[in-house]
Simulated scan of single mutants.
Amino acid sequence: MTSTTRRAGRLIAVRELQKIAEFEELFALFDGIWRFDQGGQPITVELMRALSHAGGYVAGAFDGDRLAGGSVGFLAAGNALHSHITGASAGRGIGFELKLHQRRWALERGLDRVTWTYDPLVRRNAHFNLAKLGARPHEYLPGFYGIMGDEINQGDESDRMLAIWELSAPHVEALARRQPQPVHVPRDAVVGLADDGGRPVPGRTDAAVVLVAVPADIEGLRRADPGTAKAWRHAVRDVLGGLIAEGGVVTGFHQKSSYVVETA
């Protein structure tokens, strides 16, 4: 299955990969993004080959002839595809095209949803997953991968959010047609976690809608101020993770900075 889109005069093609040389090129792209520590690679060339042969999802996005992104996933419980790793060149729309291809691939096989995990502290990922794709956080997973030593994670604790993308939900179908779906934040919403000068400050959670902020640049904080990065990790874990554990439902990501959580 191949999909092509023209963006800003460039032809973006997304297709499944099948050859060892293609898997090697995709691994090199992933390594260029994350700079994996030795022995800590989340995917290998051999595993991509096995997943592809067994009917899993291994796809690459090409900007002309250049591989600019890729995604690897496997079939999961609940009639789902679990997207294990996805990476792309930033700011080119490659990630969105990859996800649209992934969605079509799953629907063609009768699957209802795509799931994946992501770091809940990374603003751009939260905005992309919730506001651009319409996925919804389902479970907060503390220390999901243990301590990670790649260049992006910098030894931080690997809390993850499990996102579920209901492929035929009306808001997801609208977003796939590039129709924005604004998130509603009522006037009486309260701030459960605020960003005060770059530091996390807990607030109130005793309302029907709670806003939970995440830092502007957690990756930069890990390098420049590990103590503050750790403070954010534990504050988001306590507030956002706590709200979800108590039955709160994340309904969106507000102003590219805060989760919107409905508690009742």
Score class of each variant (00 low, 15 high):
residue 4 T to R: 13
residue 8 A to P: 03
residue 9 G to Q: 07
residue 10 R to N: 09
residue 16 E to F: 00
residue 17 L to N: 02
residue 19 K to W: 09
residue 22 E to G: 07
residue 29 L to T: 06
residue 29 L to Y: 08
residue 30 F to N: 12
residue 31 D to N: 15
residue 34 W to A: 09
residue 36 F to C: 08
residue 40 G to W: 12
residue 40 G to I: 04
residue 43 I to V: 15
residue 45 V to Q: 07
residue 54 A to T: 11
residue 62 F to E: 00
residue 68 A to I: 11
residue 79 N to G: 09
residue 82 H to T: 14
residue 82 H to P: 11
residue 89 S to E: 15
residue 89 S to I: 14
residue 90 A to K: 13
residue 92 R to F: 15
residue 96 F to R: 15
residue 101 H to N: 09
residue 105 W to D: 13
residue 107 L to I: 03
residue 108 E to T: 02
residue 110 G to V: 11
residue 111 L to N: 07
residue 119 D to E: 06
residue 130 L to A: 08
residue 134 G to W: 03
residue 136 R to K: 12
residue 137 P to D: 04
residue 144 F to C: 06
residue 150 D to A: 07
residue 161 M to P: 09
residue 162 L to A: 00
residue 171 H to A: 06
residue 172 V to W: 09
residue 173 E to A: 10
residue 173 E to C: 00
residue 175 L to Y: 10
residue 178 R to L: 11
residue 182 P to W: 13
residue 195 D to L: 02
residue 198 G to Q: 07
residue 201 V to L: 10
residue 204 R to I: 09
residue 209 V to I: 12
residue 222 R to G: 11
residue 223 R to T: 12
residue 228 T to M: 10
residue 231 A to S: 10
residue 233 R to P: 04
residue 234 H to S: 12
residue 236 V to M: 10
residue 237 R to Y: 03
residue 239 V to E: 01
residue 242 G to P: 01
residue 246 E to F: 00
residue 251 T to N: 09
residue 256 K to V: 11
residue 258 S to Y: 01
residue 261 V to F: 02
